[in-house]
């Protein structure tokens, strides 16, 4: 039976939501899955809310429509949840909601009023700041996603991410290593309920 998983990313322009989705898709392709990775564009500028999507399947993906009922939602910027974007739209009651936040899930539930879904948080921005000295939450979020999604071979995907980063940041090993360390730390530190 064909299985399909759909992921929606929320971020602001410049935080790397699109890059995260493309990086994930690229890495997953390398492990033998069929995939799609695509952004959604409104105003193309820094700071504006952006969305990105992944589809992952064990069979060729025919659908070219948008993702309306994701299985997983990843939020790179928690400030989006303050009325700007309904990040849980279309997410199944038992779907996974992964949020970039230093607070534990229980606290996030209290503050946002979200009652349903399986909530996870990780301080991706904090990890990024500590390891890389800048706020780039997308790569650590990938690490956390691999932990809570648990449907792929983490080692293989990690290798894929490293390869893509090495291509992108040719000759700047420090950046690659920093990102990979952030991925690993987020994988370890993501907390659930």
């Amino acid at each position: 039976m064909t299985r399909l998983t759909e992921i929606r990313w929320h971020g602001r322009g410049g935080q790397g939501a699109k890059t995260a989705a493309l990086l994930l898709g690229d890495a997953l392709l390398g492990t033998g899955f069929y995939m799609q990775a695509f952004p959604e564009y409104g105003p193309e500028r820094m700071g504006a809310p952006v969305k990105a999507y992944n589809r992952i399947s064990d069979a060729p993906i025919d659908l070219h429509s948008g993702v309306d009922t994701p299985d997983v939602v990843v939020v790179l910027d928690a400030s989006l949840m303050k009325g700007l974007t309904n990040v849980t739209e279309g997410l199944a009651d038992d779907g996974v909601l992964l949020i970039n936040s230093p607070d534990p899930p229980e606290q996030v539930r209290q503050e946002t009023g979200i009652k349903k879904h399986r909530l996870y948080t990780v301080d991706a921005s904090g990890i990024s700041q500590e390891i890389m000295g800048s706020n780039h939450p997308n790569t650590p979020m990938l690490g956390a996603l691999m932990r809570v999604a648990d449907f792929v071979d983490y080692g293989a995907v990690k290798t894929g991410i490293r390869q893509k980063l090495a291509q992108k940041f040719r000759g700047r090993d420090q950046i690659v290593e920093g990102n990979m360390a952030a991925v690993e730390r987020a994988y370890q530190e993501v907390s659930g309920e």
Binding site: L4, S57, F151
Partner: peptide, 20 residues
């Protein structure tokens, strides 16, 4: 420790389905 429940949609999918 994180309870990481398996995804309903895609657990234990056979990898290497797509041509490498």
């Amino acid at each position: 420790s994180v309870k990481a429940p398996k995804m309903a949609g895609l657990k234990s999918v056979a990898p290497k389905a797509a041509p490498l």
